[in-house]
Amino acid sequence: MSSSKSTGTAPARGVGGVSGVEVPFTLSATPARVVVLVVLFLLGALVGVAGALLQGGWFPGGLLLALLAAAGLFHGGARLTGARSGALAPAAGWLVAVILLTTSRPEGDFVFGAGVGSYLFLLGGMAVAVMCATLGLSQQPPASTARLGK
């Protein structure tokens, strides 16, 4: 096990119980990784604020553009980090910004109106975040263990 920590990989069981397959650690909390996740969180908040303003300003096109920007950031974060945390960090920032913008101020001002576009932005953004965090990040097994006939 000590040799696994020094190389940054851990032994795992392959297809059919074959051992000895090396799987890289992608969840280690290095300072660089924490910085990347914090930056992704802040970018998610920025995309949430920009999307909230854009979707209300140019209704059908602005809504699509805001959701595409969110999807691009969530998927890009997942690809950048190679883990689900890369999609969850900007999604959390997006959600915090959007939730804070839905609350009304004491003066009665608010960013989101009670309309179809606002609800589509909220629900669509959450659906995009879930899709980007759960789809497309599974790693393929090595070619030697992928064939069952060997």
Rank of each mutant, 00 (worst) to 15 (best):
K5Y: 00
S4R: 04
V49C: 12
V128E: 06
L68A: 14
W94D: 10
G16F: 05
A127G: 11
F59V: 11
G82R: 05
A92T: 15
M131L: 10
V23P: 07
V21Y: 06
F112H: 01
A129E: 02
E107T: 15
V35Y: 09
L95M: 14
S104F: 11
G20A: 09
A71S: 07
R105D: 13
A71H: 11
V39G: 04
P141V: 03
L53W: 15
P106A: 10
G61K: 04
S2I: 08
R105P: 01
V15I: 04
T81W: 04
R33Q: 12
S85W: 10
M126V: 05
S144N: 03
A114I: 05
M131F: 05
F112K: 04
L40H: 06
A45C: 08
P141Q: 00
T26M: 07
T7E: 11
E107F: 10
L135G: 00
G115R: 04
V130W: 01
T134D: 00
L42M: 15
F59M: 14
L95P: 05
I99P: 05
V18C: 03
Q55L: 12
T134K: 04
T9K: 13
V128Q: 00
G72D: 09
A29W: 09
T145F: 01
F59S: 10
G57F: 13
L42S: 14
G93H: 01
F112C: 08
G57P: 00
A87L: 04
G124S: 00
G113E: 15
P106S: 14
F25P: 00
G136Y: 00
V23N: 03
S85N: 10
S118H: 07
Q55G: 06
T26D: 08
G14E: 02
A114S: 12
Q140H: 08
L120P: 04
A69P: 04
G93P: 06
T102C: 15
V96S: 09
G124V: 00
F25H: 13
S104M: 10
S3R: 06
R84Y: 02
G82V: 08
S118Q: 09
L73H: 05
F25M: 07
L64M: 13
V111Y: 11
S28Y: 07
G44W: 14
L122E: 02
S118N: 09
H75Q: 08
T134G: 00
G76F: 03
A114W: 10
L63E: 06
G82L: 07
V21L: 05
L80I: 12
S118W: 06
P11D: 02
M126D: 00
L100Q: 12
L73S: 09
G17R: 03
G16W: 05
L122T: 01
P60Y: 08
G125K: 00
S3W: 03
S118G: 12
S118Y: 08
V98E: 10
L64K: 04
R13M: 06
S4G: 11
L88M: 12
